[in-house]
Each structure stands twice: as structure tokens, then as C-alpha cells.
Design a protein around this nucleic acid. Sequence first.
DNA 1: CAGTGAGCGAGCTTCCGCTTGACTT
Length: 684
Amino acid sequence: MPLLIVESPKKAKQIASYLGRDWTVKACFGHVRDLPAKKEEIPVKYRAQAWARLGVDVEGGYTPIYVERAKANVLAELRAAVKAAKGDVYLASDPDREGESIAWHLSVVLGLKDARRVTYQEVTKAAIQKALQSPRPINLALVAAQESRRILDRLAGYGVSPLLWDAIGGPQSAGRVQSAALMLLAQREQARMRFVPAGYWRVAAQVGTTPPFQATVQAIRGLPLATAASFTPQGQLKEGLEVAQLDAQKAEGLRGYLEGREAEVTGIEVSPVVRRPPPPFTTSSLQQAAGARLRFSVETTSRAAQSLYEQGLITYIRTDSPALSDEALELARVAVQERFGQGALPPAPRQYATRNANAQEAHEAIRPAGDFKAPKATGLSGDELALYTLIYTRTVASQMQDALGEKTTVRLQAGVVTLGATGTRLTQRGFTALYEDEAEDADDQALPALTVGQRVGLSGVKVEEKKSSAPPRYGEGAFVQLMEKAGIGRPSTYASTLKTLQGRSYVAVRGRKLHVTPLGLCVAMYLMQQLPQLVDARFTAEMERELDTIAQGALKRTVYLDRVWREALQPAIARAQRTSPRLRVPGQEAVFEVQGGQVSLRTAQGVVTLPPELLPEDLNEQSIAALLAGTWKVGRGVRAERVPASSDVDKPARAPRRKKGEAGTTKAPRKSRQAGGSRKGKRL
DNA sequence: CAGTGAGCGAGCTTCCGCTTGACTT
């Protein structure tokens, strides 16, 4: 009886139902071998080698040591199944670089002579049967690309981390993905600390039509009024920009000038607006949307999605492709037709392509599985119902018509002052019909019918001083999307990278935003100075290009690894200073110092060890004085948790217990270090 | 003489990516 091996047990069950009793289908649960993680995993015969710690013979052609990683019973079951199949085995791991590698490791571990590799893009009976008819040998060039990736990550991670043990102290870590991610966050944090806000004024008047509408001052004597975009991050007016700047007195004068004055409509522009439905979900866009709309953390989303997948309600959850299978396109179109009628459907199904250059597209989009159960029919509740509804709605919406409308821009002249207003009106709701519970854009207003030359009255003039704001900190979802765009990490690792950064206390979540801790800033700055190539997101982009060349058979693995290791990383590690970094705190007369994994703040008045919950945003003159006096407490001088905006009120209520858990995650590892650190517990 | 404590030295920490339960708390 032939044997088919796939990665996921869920998929195995599905495929077994297609193939019937003539086949055995087994899961290998992902990778079955890996480099040894720690000393006791290194086979005894290698332990004396200088390179043994790395698990890769860097002197002998980068030969890796592989040890079995899978749970013992998994491999035992596979071996028994291979025996029963008399070697008639098909390897159907995922159709990407990692999947090819898994197939190769399986062929070695299971002693398969002429391994038969099969791949398919969608899990349907027809696709599987077709795939089984054309098995091919394992693509060893693609395996070499994966092996290069694995070795590079090991050399970078295990090569650089020890520098941090010396320079920072404690169980610190560095890696191609986590350090580049940390750097992105640190750069944003630094940009915020350096940011100098600039003041500007917004002046708006009510226009006395029926209905009335709001118009804002655009220009005075033809000179545009300064806005946030007129200033540099240093708070200076941008070079060569001529704008009108107000102060309190001038703004008040302008108010008096406009109040009760008559204005003339001098221009009306109407332009068409087309809004396309958003594409079906990938791992990263689902995490982003669930964060924004349901206020889920990345971890909450991952957990709920995994459960929905296991219940057979949605397709595979770790994917970088927004594409829908033909079957799914049809089911989504049926759902649209049943609810909104034929008119809501575009003539042809909409197919979506990824815009991500690194996408491997081994799976389709995240969508309802099977027969597209309506959310109400699933019997779900709580987080899972909310997430399923989000996925269902997004999938169905993706097969609906565009929303069409027109945007009207009006210009008014009142003496020397030019005012403007815009309004958008939808003429065809299209997919937005599915999102009717949504609040409209705050800027959108209905404009009355106007004609050029018409005279209208201004009243209720409001002047408001505003400040340009620093680039915002990332929320978890937005950051996952940034990682994807930068090409660092994979759908299966976005959540765990965030967890690693928090577990190491480099990053903390406060008010649903990602903050870099003082320790994270010190680590990032140290790496930036000593190993700039590692923290550069372009390192990964370059790696991906080279791996592609290896996969095409046009570049030798050893040649590439020599270039990144022997000629670049290894000498940089050898040259690196191992002294602890000092980091000036922007805007303060203070310096971060770090010793034994502990960050202290040094000022002219003295030195104080920073409490673990202190974040850079907490530092100002008052808090530094309190720290030195030993009276600082978290929450003092920190804005209270944001009260939900009114538009959030109708969203599903979130259980408060989760917030508590999130706040706790950053504390535990630090405590263990302070206690002397012999605790072996793995938190990650 | 037995117990205590200071001081010293050795050993440890770590990567990324693929997949799920089986464990506690």
C-alpha cells in the first residue's frame, strides 16, 4: 500500500479522505532534522572540534551536523509506515524551499532510495490525483538554497550572540531576523526622541448653505497656510517653502476677519472615486486587520486562527498568498449572489496577486474552508466567531463590485482668504455594503449642490492650534506588515519574532504599541556600530536573491557562504569591540550604561539602575529626578490607558484578563536574571 | 573541630523556520 507524507496532520486527514483505503497518509509535523541547538545535542565525535558549537564545519565546506528533531514517535511511525509500504513512498511536503528540504531530510532519515516528490497548489481531490501521476526527484539545488539559509542563520545567530554576552551581559541574542526587526523599531523610537514638534493653526468656518458644511482656510493672499507637512522632523520650515504662519494673535485676527463675511464659490472640481475591495487575507494582513478592527494582539489572532483551522472552518493559516482557488472563487460568488443578487457580482471572478517579492505562495489565501459556512451557522462564539466573521466577510467582499463615487472639491474666496472643502459621495456601494456597520471617514461630509459664483455666508469660525506629531510607534499588526514588506521573517515566524523580542526585554507593548526598551536601544546601537550589515534589512533581501541563484544551480553554496561568513561576518565578529555600550539619551543630559544585562542611567547627579518597566517615553526631567530619588513609579507621568474612542464602543468587548497577561510578559525574564539566573525554564 | 562565608572560577546563555499537542499554572 503506497504511503504519502505531508507536513500537517490536518492535511493528511483531508487527503486520506480523497485517496481512500488504498493509501496510507502520514504527517511529519514539519522539519524532522535540524542543527544541534546546544552542547548535549552535538554528537560526541564532533565535540572536540573548534566549530562544534556552531553545528557547522566552517573549515570543511560548511558541512552541517544534523540531528533528529521530530518527536520520537513521529519518526517511529513513519519508519513503520515506510516498511509497510515496501518503499512505495511519495513525499508531499509544501511546495516551497522549506518543504523541499523537509522532503530531502525525510528521504535521508527514512532511507528512501529514489524519493518521489509530488507537489500541488490546492488540496482538492483532482489536484492531488494529478500530482501523484507526475512524481519527480527531489530538487537538490532548492535543498541547497534552504541549507544555505539555515547555515547562514546559525552562523549569524550563534556567531554574534556571544558578542552581546560580553558587551551587554546576560542571555542576550542577535539574529538576521530579530536584529533587523529590532533595528526598525529602534530607528522609529530614535526618530521620535529626536522629533521636534512644530506648531501650526487650523482655521475652519461653517458655510451657511442647506445643509451647512465645514470649509478650512487654505491660503491667505495666495500664500498657503502652513500645515503639519510644511515642517521637517526638526521642527523647521521645509527648505524653499513659502507659507503663511499664524500665531495666536494673527489667528484671532483671521477669525474676526472671516466671521460673518460673505464668500464666493470660485471653483468646483468633481473627480471619480473607485474603491476596490481589499484582497483576501494572508497571515500578515489578517494579523493587521484583527489588531485594528478587533483589537486582538498578534498572539490572540494566531491562537484563534489555529483553532479555526483545526475545526476545519478556514484554510491554512500561514500563507503569503492572497490567491483564491477556483473552487473558493465560485463559493464566494455564490455567497455574494445569495445575499445581494447577481448585480453585486463583477462579470469575471477577481483574482489577487501578491505584491511581495519574497512570497513563496505555497498555500492559498486564508478563507472559509469547505462550504463557506455563514458566521451564524458555525456555532462559534467570542474571539473565534469575531475572527471567522472577519475572514468570511473579507473573502466574500473580495468578489464584489468596486464601490464607486465622486469626490467634490470646492474652493471659496472670502476677501484675501481662500477656503476649501471636500466631500465624497458613493454612487455604487459595491463591496462596502458588507461593511455597513463601519463608521464613515471622519473627513467625509455631504456637500450641498453649489455653483461657481454663488455667494455664501461664513459663521462659527473656529481657530485651533495644532502640533506636528512624531512618526507613530508601530502596533503589532502594522509591524508584522512592515517585516513582511522588508522581507524579514516568514508567515510562520512573525508572531514568534515579536515574542522573542519581548521575551528578551528588547521590546515591550504599552497602550497596544511596540516600544523599544532602554536595553533594546543599547543592543540595537551596539549591533549598529559593530555589525551594521546584520541589522540592515537589506541583508535579507540580498540573501534571498543569492538563494534564488543557488536554487537555479547557478551559484555554489560554499561560494556564497564564504562570501557572507569568511569574508564578512567572521572578520567583523573578530574585530568587534566587546566593551559595554554607552548611549546618550536624546533630549536629556543623561547616558544609558549597561552591565550584566542591566541598564542604568548616568546623570551629573548620580547613577541609577532602571526599573524593568521603564520605557524611553517615561524619561523627562521630573522622572529622572524621581528615579535618582528612588521614588519613581510606573504610571507616573505616563498617559493612562487610552479610553476607547466612541467608534470602538460597538466592537466586541475584550476580556480585561488578556491585557494583564501582556503586561506580565516583559517582566518575568528580567526577574529571573536578577535572581541569579540559574533558572532553566524556557519561556519562548 | 564543625560550620559559615567570602572569593574565585567554570559553565551557561544564542539562530530561523516548519509543524502541533502535552505539559503546567
